[in-house]
Design a protein around this nucleic acid. Structure first.
Length: 604
DNA sequence: TAACTCGGACTTTCAAGAGT
DNA sequence: CTCTTGAAAGTCCGAGTTAT
């Protein structure tokens, strides 16, 4: 096969067309080499919409059909022919340059990310390996203790007693300064890819970073009250990011990622998706995923090089999270080859450590990337909506392995100073969310109340306890773990806003369990629902999406409650229960419902 | 009758193993 | 190394179904 790198592909497809099809080959594309054995009028890749409908795709971007229907026209890498990683790597012990993707389900990048080594890439680097690990190293330029920037940027806000003081309490700050500080205090720990503040401001004197600073100010302004300045910053950021003469570089990618996360949390998912699609294209076009990018654009400054690597991986993670929680996009970057590994510790090594018996400690950033890659593998399952038992257990093995092989320091999202490691927090969050999404279709918990609130009815008479099937137990466990994550002693709003969506997932599971007519551990359940709703309320102060989620959760709860009440009027319902059990169950239901109502009506 | 769905024929691609 | 083979993943024709 004539392999082409993503950059080559995009270049060959002409200027500035997002989601370009990998290589559409109409008849004319034989271009003299005469080797085109593609049947006349058959394109080598159909867009997702056409593929799904079994219809002919013209290979354009957008294709004719998508253009007519005004739908998003997305082309993804083909996994045709790929049957899993090679069983006998030609050079055991070393990573061969042409090694297979580590994914059990395939990362073959034959189209968007072709097998050809990207230009300007270190030749020894595996091009087929979407790999990577930001290695833990004392030399990591951002913080002395590794990746987590939380401590670094929080420390300046710590008062004498060690209690957290918000950035907004600093005296004599201008509004832009307050917003920037707010960005670093709240947002940065969850998405630590831009340069640390002092270095960024220094850099801004040499380069035009107005767009990036505007985006940072806008997102920072979401956390504090700055009046009409917020809208001004947003307009400014959008104008600068989409300016005709804007330089398409890593800083633009950073600005766009910040904007899209902010928009996604502000209930502007469509706009966020649009930016995501643009930024993906720009990132590929400029080769952000290559090892060479960091070196070429780092100016020999390790801190800057690290920032570029993080920019790619944060975009990768955000792409995965957007796809995972909204199910509108398909985690396009999952199929892209990436080789920007700062240390010779490939993600493939990460996967292999289980078999090599070598328990190395990787950075939290690496565990986060590994976690989102598991989500990608899950999303690439055939029949994603209702996967087979076999496929579910394959992905569950990946999730369990990820958890089981965590070093002791990474198990609880707290670092050695007992401060929250936000990267591990997200890694765990993704793992649990994945577990719920994976097992829900095969579980016994009826999620229909969540899908269609008006159609709510606790259809399934499933008893809790050991009678639950394995899938049900998995999702209940994951939902409980997510609720536990609320209890970490940091401002809940400093977590990534995607935590909102994961909390919603967890709440739906709790409520679905509650929909069963008798719950033995109702106190636990009540506590967990309380935790989730309390957290959603807090998040609503910043993220509009959390506000919407709270409302939806309450809607589901009310619907379930109504249906339960209706069932309970039937004497048959209580057959087999003692008087005490009946009273306790009804009281618990009342309790849960009244708490949900109280908490949500007192929400801001 | 236009629009949509999807079974299935046919093609492409890759991993593995045999042969040189 | 190259060649062959088998299977997975892909494209999209066209028959059947549904919506208007």
């Amino acid at each position: 096969m004539a392999s082409r790198s993503p950059t080559e592909l995009l270049t060959s497809l002409g200027p500035d067309v997002p989601n370009q099809p990998p290589h559409s080959t109409p008849m004319s594309s034989t271009s003299g080499n005469g080797d085109s054995r593609t049947p006349p009028n058959t394109v080598q890749a159909a867009c997702l919409a056409c593929r799904g409908k079994h219809l002919k795709c013209d290979g354009n971007t957008p294709c004719g059909r998508c253009q007519i229907h005004e739908t998003e026209c997305i082309y993804v890498a083909s996994r045709r022919g790929y049957k899993g990683p090679r069983r006998n790597p030609p050079n055991p012990g070393k990573r061969p340059a042409s090694d297979s993707p580590p994914s059990a389900n395939g990362d073959t990048c034959s189209l968007i990310a072709s097998v050809t080594r990207p230009m300007a890439t270190a030749p020894s680097v595996s091009t087929f390996n979407p790999a990577v690990v930001v290695a833990e190293s004392p030399a990591t330029p951002f913080t002395a203790s590794g990746v987590n920037g939380l401590q670094l940027y929080r420390s300046q806000y710590l008062n004498g007693g060690g209690a957290l003081v918000g950035p907004d309490t600093q005296p004599q700050q201008t509004i832009p300064e307050r917003c920037l500080n707010s960005f670093y205090y709240y947002f940065y720990p969850g998405h630590p890819s831009v340069l640390p503040k002092e270095h960024l401001l220094k850099m801004a004197k040499e380069k035009d970073l107005a767009h990036l600073l505007a985006a940072m100010r806008w997102v920072g302004s979401l956390y504090i009250d700055v009046g009409p300045a917020r809208a001004t910053y947003f307009e400014e950021a959008m104008r600068l990011v989409y300016a005709q003469d804007v330089v398409r570089d890593g800083y633009l990618v950073q600005a766009m990622v910040i904007l899209l996360i902010g928009l996604d949390g502000s209930c502007q998912q469509e706009k966020a998706r649009e930016i995501l699609s643009h930024v993906e294209r720009i990132a590929i076009e400029i080769g952000l995923y290559t090892r060479a990018f960091a070196t070429l654009h780092g100016g020999g400054v390790p801190r800057v090089e690290e920032s570029w690597r993080r920019t790619w991986w944060d975009l990768f993670v955000v792409d995965g999270m957007v796809a995972g929680v909204h199910r509108q996009t398909n985690f396009l970057l999952f199929d892209i080859v990436a080789d920007n590994i700062p240390r010779p510790m490939y993600l493939e090594d990460f996967d292999d450590q289980v078999f090599s018996g070598e328990e190395r400690e990787f950075s939290s950033f690496a565990y986060r990337v590994a976690s989102i890659r598991n989500l990608g593998r899950m999303m690439r399952l055939p029949n994603n909506g209702f996967p087979s038992e076999e496929n579910v257990s394959r992905i569950e093995s990946l999730l369990s392995n990820w958890r089981m092989h965590l070093p002791p320091t990474k198990i609880d999202s707290l670092n050695k100073d007992c401060q929250l490691d936000e990267m591990m927090f997200q890694a765990h969050m993704i793992n649990h969310a994945c577990s719920i999404i994976l097992h829900q279709p095969l579980s016994q918990l009826d999620s229909s109340p969540a899908r269609d609130v008006t159609a709510c009815a606790p259809h399934r008479a499933v008893q809790s306890g050991d009678n639950f099937n394995i899938h049900t137990r998995h999702i209940i466990k994951a939902a409980c773990e997510i609720s536990k994550m609320v209890t970490y002693n940091v401002p809940i709003t400093s977590h990534t806003h995607f935590f909102t969506c994961v909390l919603t997932l967890s709440s739906i599971v709790h409520l679905s369990k509650w929909a069963l007519y008798f719950i033995h551990d109702e106190d636990d359940l009540r506590q967990q629902v309380r935790l989730n709703i309390g957290a959603l309320n807090k998040l609503s102060n910043v993220w509009k999406a959390a506000n919407t989620a709270s409302g939806q959760v309450r809607g589901v709860a009310q619907e379930i409650y109504r249906a339960k009440k209706a069932q309970q009027t039937n004497p048959q319902f209580w057959v087999g229960f003692t008087q005490e059990e009946i009273i306790s169950s009804m009281a618990a239901d009342e309790g849960i419902m009244s708490e949900i109502n109280t908490m949500l009506t007192s929400a801001p």
